[in-house]
């Protein structure tokens, strides 16, 4: 096919690695700024993706991130094979967190992950199944 109109990026999100957690989202941030996308759009994408990435690290032993960028939008898909979310409505509430104390001591797990994703994404889709895993799809429009 050669060069297409959709730019695809793939990242592996390592398990329980808080030092490199966020590397994928900062790489996407760099990519978007090289494309000349508006700063506020980059910020929205980076924050939403960062939260999803961190969630995969904290709750799900890591996962994968697949990014698709086209002329109008960026779609960020974060997939994991973790425990899944039993009550999604509850998890969407600000301050709700199931993160263990050790994680909270590191400054993560404040219960803002999903609410922040919702705030910054133009569209947020979450498919989750207890015992199977979670897929988060974030769409951010360029205009």
């Amino acid at each position: 096919m050669g060069l297409s109109n959709v730019l695809k990026l793939h990242f592996d999100i390592p398990a329980n690695d808080f030092v490199s957690a966020g590397e994928a989202s900062s790489s996407v941030k760099k990519t978007l700024s090289q494309l000349g996308i508006a700063p506020q759009v980059i910020k929205k994408s980076a924050i939403a993706m960062y939260e999803a990435e961190i969630n995969a690290v904290i709750h799900a032993n890591g996962g994968t991130a697949d990014i698709e960028i086209d002329q109008d939008k960026v779609i960020i898909k974060i997939q994991d094979e973790g425990p899944g979310i039993p009550d999604l409505d509850l998890a969407m509430q600000e301050g709700f967190s199931t993160a263990p104390d050790t994680v909270r001591q590191m400054g993560f797990g404040a219960g803002m992950g999903l609410p922040n994703m919702k705030r910054y994404a133009d569209e947020l889709k979450i498919n989750t199944e207890v015992g199977r895993g979670t897929t988060v799809i974030i769409r951010v429009n360029f205009a």
Partner: peptide, 23 residues
């Protein structure tokens, strides 16, 4: 003012192609 010196091309489609080649 914002000085987006990192961007590869003023045209988004061209920037995307350049980025793909870059990778």
């Amino acid at each position: 003012e914002c000085k987006p010196v990192m961007k590869l091309d003023i045209d988004l489609a061209k920037a995307m192609k350049k980025l793909e080649t870059l990778e």
